[in-house]
Nucleic acid binder design. Sequence first.
DNA 1: ACCATATTTGTACTATCGTCCAAATATTCA
DNA 2: TGAATATTTGGACGATAGTACAAATATGGT
Lengths: 248, 248
Amino acid sequence: MVRKPTKSNVKADAKAVSTRKPNMREAILAAAEELFSTYGFNAVSVRDIAQAAGANPGSVTYHFKTKDGLLLEIYRRHCGPMNRRRSELLAAARRVRDLQDRLEAIVRAYVLPAFTSGSDLAGGGTRFTRLRAIMSAEGNEVVRKIIAQTFDDTSHAFIDAIHESLPHIPRTDLVWRGHFLLGALYYTLVTPERVSRLSRGSADGTDAGHAIEELVRATVAALQAPPLDPAISALRKAPGFAPGRALT
Amino acid sequence: MVRKPTKSNVKADAKAVSTRKPNMREAILAAAEELFSTYGFNAVSVRDIAQAAGANPGSVTYHFKTKDGLLLEIYRRHCGPMNRRRSELLAAARRVRDLQDRLEAIVRAYVLPAFTSGSDLAGGGTRFTRLRAIMSAEGNEVVRKIIAQTFDDTSHAFIDAIHESLPHIPRTDLVWRGHFLLGALYYTLVTPERVSRLSRGSADGTDAGHAIEELVRATVAALQAPPLDPAISALRKAPGFAPGRALT
DNA sequence: ACCATATTTGTACTATCGTCCAAATATTCA
DNA sequence: TGAATATTTGGACGATAGTACAAATATGGT
């Protein structure tokens, strides 16, 4: 990337010839993202990442100090833009008049950024969501903190918006269904043979598009389902059991 | 377990005093199951397992040859009973007269064994399902084969049964929704704070029960949702894209 | 061109990984 | 009991892990 003149943000010159090697730091981040989201955090070594990025293992340590630091930086890169996009789409969805359409728009506002958000890289959104899926399965400790402090607000906003569209359904049920949505979303992105060409899909996202439409359709129907028998629900009012951290 | 007299299946004597150390092999299997399902395959070392089982690392090699072999044996232990239970419940569900009730019974037949199947150990079902969830995220190669040859038949049977209850919905959509069900199921079991006391739930499974009821209710509604616009669906008829391995 | 700084390189350190193996011990059956 | 077998033990092997660090090189401002 030829080292920017200290203070101006010229980014246009880079990436002119596909992937040349504009910035080692970026190359490492991209390689780590790809490898982590494919094989998991523990299965990938710093040396694997360095090799994939065409860098020296020491360079990784130089830029990110530790392997955890590298993972942290990946999350920092994506969480902000992704949640910003979600907020924008959610705000737009809230303005939809028709109740049914509004609910669908809300769900879409949650799902879409998981497929398309993030950087300019193709498939950046799906790759990061795949990474989140794997990390949630591996129960990584470093990630848990970021998740809590980054996604909690957004998640509550979505639950609230859904609850406004479906006031007759107890919030507990909606939280569960939102939880299921995230699980379905994660699994869809993690199962490679099903969405293998997702990241290589054409710009209009027709390939990913179908998966999204199926997911939105199914989720809207699930959200609208009649709540469980209140007699049973009441039994479960025990504190601490109801999901408190849904959609994260 | 005091080494059986060569050919008789006396299992009653063992496990008399809680967990004494009836059989090292079983202890290793249990420890590995617990650790793998909590931290993932790659994050757990053979030494971790040996220590948790109160065994020597060499013992693990002796009984299972390799770490992969240990994982394989865990799957062998659970897949059979779990699929058998599913088949039984599915057969019973098929006999339900009312269409709505039947669909619900079918979904329940798929979900229930994931929580309760397997060995005599408490929470054996959830632990194994959690393991499957993590392995699917990590993309483990050893597991992919077992999954394909063990769950494919059962999965097709479920899709068929659902399709019979909802003949007006294209099979493709049902496959997607079954896929979402599995994702939701996995994520529910993998997120510990939400189902933390699942395995410690009372014998009637009230704690797990609520999660199951929420999942079944949401899934039935999702399955019944009107299919996507056929015009869009038709575009996606391209071979190889529609999920071919759902519910596995 | 020169200096200060930023980055990359190569290597080395320690820790831990999966696996192996010979010796020690426990168990079973004649 | 004694011989045969099954299991457990403790230590070792080479490979690879994450990280550290000094030397080498590239870069940017003057």
